Simulated assay, not measured.
Amino acid sequence: MKRLWVRIFVTGFVLWAATVLVTAWTGNSNLVPTVVLFGSFLVPVTFVVWAYGRGRSPRVTVELLFMAFVVGGVLGVLGASLLESWLLRPSLLMYVAVGLIEEGVKLAALMFVTRRMERRSTMDGVILGATVGFGFAAFESAGYAFNALFTADGLSLGQLVETEVLRGILAPVGHGLWTAVLGGALFAAGGRLTNRVVLAYLGVSALHALWDSMSAIAIAVTLVLTGRPWQFEALRIGRVPHVTAWQVHVYTLLNWAGLIVISLVALGWLWSTVRTGRRDREILSQ
């Protein structure tokens, strides 16, 4: 089992890259689903195996991990799709609503797949929460990759691959991380929805909302800092203004800086949750 996650990632990456090359060379569209599935699931599965190896627990079985990843992930995306289609309307609060909905359905999915656990620890919650979150991310990424395939000029393998690479790079600091924090809080409370769990839910939902809205925030800040009078005039009459090369650089810097800060906050929160869980376990074992 040692370094199993490395072997899984390397093997999966080689197979994915080979599939992309063969698809591009032959133009065989029958291989597209393989590209979508390998590219969408490789990083989430790798991180689930890594987390399982780091926090091995007799209560977290391979069967339970599979249930959390597949059943929890599918229930999460289905619940999010239904609620967002019913409740979301274009507004300034749309990103907040998305964060509340998606973190809420992942929490509900985690509670469902772990409902029969009699004993649980904070670390169990972190691992299983991350597994549900990565399952959600994998199925969601598959949908984004599939949509990226279709363009006005026909099927675009390049856009599909670009989408999978970007989402794969960002996957470790997205859904899996947020639900790991929430799972740790839930299991620390014995699986009950206490005030601390509700606060953790609101906190990760806020991080989620900031993450999704970072591009819009970066655009707004860029305009405030570098906007020209003619650009504001174009906005006033409902037109999209042309942007300068310097503004593109400022926007990119602000966008990525914001994502990094959000990721560091979430990682710090997770580290604190894991440390608290380990301390509590040591106290109980004495």
Results as ranks from 00 to 15, higher is better:
residue 173 V to W: 09
residue 120 R to H: 07
residue 245 A to N: 09
residue 81 S to E: 13
residue 125 G to L: 08
residue 138 A to G: 06
residue 72 G to S: 11
residue 53 G to L: 05
residue 95 Y to M: 09
residue 8 I to N: 03
residue 152 A to Q: 13
residue 28 N to H: 11
residue 249 H to Q: 12
residue 176 G to T: 02
residue 44 P to T: 07
residue 59 R to C: 00
residue 134 F to M: 09
residue 87 L to F: 14
residue 19 T to F: 07
residue 105 V to K: 02
residue 271 W to D: 10
residue 147 N to G: 06
residue 280 D to Q: 15
residue 215 S to G: 12
residue 236 R to Y: 14
residue 234 A to E: 07
residue 192 R to H: 15
residue 90 P to D: 12
residue 115 R to D: 02
residue 23 T to F: 06
residue 14 V to N: 01
residue 106 K to S: 04
residue 260 I to A: 15
residue 89 R to S: 13
residue 173 V to Q: 02
residue 3 R to Y: 13
residue 236 R to T: 08
residue 123 M to L: 15
residue 28 N to Y: 06
residue 16 W to H: 09
residue 3 R to E: 10
residue 239 R to F: 14
residue 234 A to R: 09
residue 225 L to M: 12
residue 13 F to E: 04
residue 11 T to M: 12
residue 75 L to P: 01
residue 56 R to E: 13
residue 83 L to P: 08
residue 160 L to F: 03
residue 173 V to Y: 08
residue 30 N to S: 15
residue 87 L to E: 06
residue 84 E to M: 15
residue 91 S to K: 10
residue 67 M to N: 12
residue 19 T to N: 13
residue 44 P to F: 01
residue 154 G to D: 09
residue 195 N to V: 14
residue 210 L to D: 02
residue 55 G to I: 03
residue 58 P to Y: 01
residue 48 V to K: 02
residue 153 D to F: 04
residue 264 L to C: 14
residue 210 L to C: 12
residue 184 G to F: 11
residue 68 A to D: 04
residue 83 L to Y: 07
residue 194 T to R: 10
residue 212 D to R: 04
residue 213 S to W: 10
residue 103 E to Y: 09
residue 26 T to L: 11
residue 143 G to D: 02
residue 280 D to M: 14
residue 191 G to M: 11
residue 267 L to G: 05
residue 256 W to Y: 14
residue 196 R to Y: 07
residue 165 V to Q: 01
residue 167 R to H: 12
residue 229 P to N: 11
residue 43 V to I: 15
residue 79 G to P: 04
residue 249 H to S: 12
residue 23 T to L: 09
residue 279 R to Y: 13
residue 177 L to H: 08
residue 57 S to Q: 07
residue 5 W to L: 00
residue 211 W to D: 09
residue 153 D to Y: 05
residue 43 V to Q: 08
residue 57 S to T: 11
residue 133 G to W: 11
residue 100 L to T: 01
residue 215 S to F: 08
residue 22 V to P: 00
residue 126 V to Y: 02
residue 49 V to G: 03
residue 17 A to I: 07
residue 116 R to D: 12
residue 141 S to Q: 11
residue 179 T to I: 14
residue 286 Q to S: 13
residue 147 N to D: 12
residue 32 V to R: 11
residue 116 R to K: 14
residue 234 A to W: 05
residue 193 L to D: 10
residue 243 V to K: 00
residue 229 P to I: 09
residue 188 A to V: 03
residue 144 Y to N: 03
residue 201 Y to N: 01
residue 169 I to G: 09
residue 284 L to D: 14
residue 247 Q to R: 00
residue 214 M to R: 04
residue 228 R to G: 00
residue 283 I to Y: 10
residue 159 Q to E: 13
residue 22 V to K: 07
residue 91 S to F: 10
residue 45 V to P: 02
residue 262 I to T: 10
residue 140 E to Y: 05
residue 97 A to T: 02
residue 228 R to Q: 15
residue 219 I to R: 01
residue 213 S to E: 12
residue 109 A to Q: 05
residue 258 G to I: 00
residue 206 A to G: 04
residue 144 Y to G: 06
